[in-house]
Structure formats: structure tokens, C-alpha cells
Simulated scan of single mutants.
Amino acid sequence: MARYLIKRILGMCVVIFLVLTIAFIIVRLAPGDPAALMLGPDATAEDAAALRSQLGLDRPITAQYLSFVRGALQGDLGTSIYFKQPVVSVLAGRAEPTIFLSLFSLVIALVIATPIGIYAAYRRGSLLDQGAISTAMLAASIPSFWTGLMFQRYLATDLGWFPASGYGAPDASFVERMGYLILPAIVLGIVNSALILRFTRASMLDILGEDYVRTARSKGMTERRVVLRHALKNAAIPIITVIGLTFALLVSGAVVTERVFNIPGMGNLVVSAVLRRDYPVIQGALIVVASLYVLINLLTDLLYLLVDKRVKY
């Protein structure tokens, strides 16, 4: 086990180093001069040159890269060109809504997908099974921004059940801010429940046809115990895998939903940083998201040990 963890951690370090390199290259391939964009159309060439020198953008690419990597290894992702603050502080200030939005969305997706997927597999070929698969495909096909706009229009504006947008006033309590995340979490939960539902159904179908399931039934066990204790437990590994991937996608892919509901999260921040050519923020966000991906992947693999003692590393 220790050997496996060491190998995985070394692999994570390699992945993050590659992400550092790719992030550095990609943002500098983007067209436009960040100094000129910051100063506006009325700035002179001398002003732009002075700002580039201040930001270190006039140094050779190799020197910029080495400085960037050295700072990242020390936990310094640079200073935001727009906010004039450390990138770590800027990202930390936007992390709360994105993390809680992702968690709420994942819970909603699980509440929707898991019981329906289990029951659809148990009643394979039934009207409910066919309806569940069709609904899941429809939910996965509809763009999340359209679903968000419709929910915002009818549930928030017309019925007034939820706040339409925003994240509360600066002095709002934690509970009040969480209330602003319910409607976007429902939107993301519905969209992402489709994949979990299909994986749950497919995994359960594979297990329900096994000999030990038929043996459990022949011993007189109730169907509920057979399905939940024997079948679901052995079908859990693929389901846990897709849940981990879904959570990682939610953390990194909530950009559209945050824009629709005007949530000041990391997704909204990255879009604004791209428009402003705020290189440090873009690089920092890419590094943080990649680190979360590899960390969630590792935690997902370790969860296998809790659900199936036969798994060996």
C-alpha cells in the first residue's frame, strides 16, 4: 500500500509539473498584449513598455518560465495583473461558491440517479427502465445554460421560490449565501445525474446476472437485501469511479452556470481573467483545477478499499 501511494504521489507531481508547463505556454500563445489591454486604447507605447517591464513580461521566455516554476513550487502563483493581489488570495476568495455549488450539485445528482438507476436495472426492459434511459439522454443533451435560464425564469422570477442570481450581500450570512446556490445546484445536478444513472444501471445489470445473486435468491433472501447488500455492494466500484469524475468535472466545469446565475466563483473568475489577459490568474486556476483532478482521482482509488476488501494495491 505504501509503495502504491509513493508511486501515485510521484505520478501526481509529474502531472502537475506538466500542467505548469502547458499553462505557461498556452496563456502566452494567446493574442493580445496584456499591458496594452490593461492601460486601455489611449495608452502610449511608452506606457505599455513601462508596464511590461514592471510585470516582467519583457524578460526572456526562459527566465519567465523558471521564475514561474520556482514560485509555484513555493506556493507563490504570482500577482494578479488586474486585482493587484496574490493569485492564491484571489482564487481562495472565489473558491467557496464553486466548491459548495459542486458539492450540492453532486448530492442532487446522486439523489436523482442512484435510486432510479438501481430500480431501472432491477426492472430491466420495463416502461420505467426505458423512460429513465430516455430522460437521462435528454437531460445530458440539453445545454446547461438553457436549463438554467428556464429555471431562472419560472422558478425564480415567476414563482419566487429561489433567488434569481448573485451570491448575497457582502454581509450576508453563510446560510443566506448557500440559499443562492440551490437553484444552480439543481440545474447542474439534473444535467450530471444522467451519466451517474447510466453507469449505475449498467453496473447493476452486470451484477444482477451473476451466479451468487441467483444463489442468494434461492436461499430465500428478500429482493431488497439481494439488490442492496449483494448486487449494489459489488457494483459500487464503477459507480464510485464515475462519481469521482463527475465531482472533478463539476469543480472545473461550472463556468456556464456561474455566468448564468452571476455567481462569483472560480469559473466566473477564469472567464474574466481570459478577457483581461490576466496571465497569473489563468495559470493559477489551471494549476489548482489540475491538482484537484489528480487528488480526487487518488481519493477515488483509495475509496475502493472501503467498499471491496478484495481490492489490492
Rank of each mutant, 00 (worst) to 15 (best):
D171G: 03
S134R: 05
R259C: 06
S193D: 07
I22Q: 06
Y279Q: 10
Y122L: 04
C13S: 12
D33N: 12
V288K: 00
F261P: 03
M137W: 09
R123P: 10
P60W: 09
A185Q: 06
L305K: 05
A2F: 15
I133H: 09
V14S: 05
A194L: 07
G71R: 01
I186Y: 06
D171A: 08
L37N: 14
L232M: 10
N297P: 09
I26Q: 09
A236P: 00
D206A: 12
L127I: 11
T157V: 15
L110C: 13
S252I: 15
R198P: 04
A49V: 05
L228K: 01
R3G: 11
I26Y: 11
G265E: 08
A45L: 13
I237Y: 10
T62G: 12
Y212D: 01
A136K: 04
I25R: 02
I108R: 02
G244T: 12
I116H: 09
Y122M: 08
A48H: 03
D158N: 14
V274Y: 04
K312L: 13
Q54R: 13
L155D: 10
R201D: 05
Q152V: 03
A50K: 08
E176L: 13
T215E: 00
D278P: 06
M150K: 00
R214F: 13
M137K: 05
I25V: 14
P115C: 14
I239F: 02
